[in-house]
């Protein structure tokens, strides 16, 4: 069997001693477009943040293309939530896209012609090249999201983790993003997307990861997009599990 793009085993995350994600085991094959869905507070963002090591996991391990994340970090692109940054920051659209190329440059090397070309190409792909010199605060929400995507594209990774790229974007941007995701899949990239809209989830993705504090199901859309599994995912929080977790935290 080919090496999976992403493999997690018993991935567990605790905030202030309170578990928010329990033992997630998932194996994502290369070239799949995966939607991560689940109710609010299910730990969707936490899952990809812990895969990226942005929030520390309290147990389990993550492998990317068969190696530890650290060894293969350059093959992973991360798109954080748009709200996570200050858009008044004095940088231009081009500056942000260029950040995608910094990973390979290390701490001290300056971006040269090749990096600028890659950043321009990425901006072109998301239709933001004409705005290169704009300060990022002077953009609409959809445009800001496109800039974030361009930054990830400039990284030229093989596995992408995206946190709610469809949140607060206009319909045109949503369509553009989904076209881009499908094109990325054609080129053999693996993409995991945190998604909040159940309705479009079955059309957009070819695999779904149903999450509610623990992994409910992972598989092809036709296998897991079933009333029973959705009911299991969205049918309220696991009352007993979170109560016990609360008590354990107080000990």
């Amino acid at each position: 069997m080919a090496t999976p793009a992403l493999e997690t085993h018993d991935l567990t995350v605790t905030y202030h001693k309170r578990p928010v994600l329990y033992g997630v085991d998932v194996t994502v094959p290369e070239g799949s477009l995966v939607g991560i869905i689940g109710p609010n507070g299910a730990g969707k963002s936490t899952l990809i943040k812990s895969i990226m090591g942005v929030v520390p996991s309290s147990g389990g391990w993550v492998k990317v293309f068969g190696k530890s994340l650290k060894e293969n970090l350059h093959r992973v692109g991360y798109v954080p939530q748009r709200e996570s940054v200050d858009w008044d920051f004095p940088v231009t659209v081009m500056d942000v896209a260029l950040m995608g190329t910094y990973g390979r440059l290390g701490l001290f090397r300056r971006p040269g012609k090749e990096e600028k070309r890659r950043a321009s190409e990425a901006l072109e792909k998301v239709g933001m090249l004409p705005y290169s010199n704009r300060q990022i605060g002077n953009l609409s929400g959809g445009q800001q999201q496109r800039v974030f995507l361009a930054r990830a594209l400039a990284q030229d990774s093989d596995l992408y983790l995206m946190d709610e790229p469809f949140a607060g974007v206009d319909a045109a941007t949503e369509a553009a993003i989904i076209a881009l995701l499908k094109e990325m899949r054609e080129r053999g990239k693996t993409v995991l997307v945190v998604h909040h809209d159940l309705q479009s989830a079955s059309e957009y993705f070819d695999r779904l990861l149903l999450l509610n504090m623990r992994l409910v199901a992972f598989g092809k859309v036709k296998d897991v997009f079933t009333p029973e599994l959705l009911q299991k995912t969205y049918g309220g929080r696991l009352t007993l599990l979170s109560e016990v977790a609360d008590r354990a935290a107080k000990l």
């Binding site: 990226m52 954080p80 920051f89 950040m99």
Partner: peptide, 10 residues
């Protein structure tokens, strides 16, 4: 600007 992304860059 973006601490999470910086971590992702290594």
């Amino acid at each position: 600007f973006d601490e999470g992304f910086a971590r992702g860059l290594g």
